[in-house]
């Protein structure tokens, strides 16, 4: 259930908003509070169902990284795996690297 697509809010007019999906702009309805241009949102069937949190964006990724560290400490995962992840972390957690 529930195909959801990410986009960036361009304009807000009451309950309606224009969202940029990357080369494609659509008018949608919103059911979220305090929507402002620049917000990233999830759109389902022509409606914004949720805002996306930039802060939380890497949350689950950090979770897996911490787990990898722990597994390496316990000797359950090879250090090489962690080093490989380190590289990815460095590359992806710095915002200006995008």
């Amino acid at each position: 259930m529930c195909w959801g697509v990410y986009g960036k809010v361009l304009e807000v007019h009451g309950e309606r908003a224009y969202v940029d999906f990357g080369g494609v702009v659509e008018e949608v309805v919103s059911v979220v509070d305090e929507l402002v241009p620049g917000d990233y949102v999830v759109v389902h069937a022509g409606m914004i169902i949720s805002k996306l949190s930039e802060e939380e964006f890497l949350g689950s990724f950090k979770y897996i990284y911490e787990m990898a560290k722990k597994l390496v400490e316990n000797g359950e995962l090879s250090k090489r795996e962690l080093e490989k992840m380190d590289e990815v972390v460095k590359r992806w957690t710095t915002k200006d690297r995008w």
Binding site: V5, F21, G22, G23, V24, V43
Partner: peptide, 13 residues
């Protein structure tokens, strides 16, 4: 695949 096409396809599934 061009981004605009990819994103349009994704929008409509």
């Amino acid at each position: 695949l061009r981004d605009a096409v990819k994103n349009y396809c994704e929008l409509l599934g």
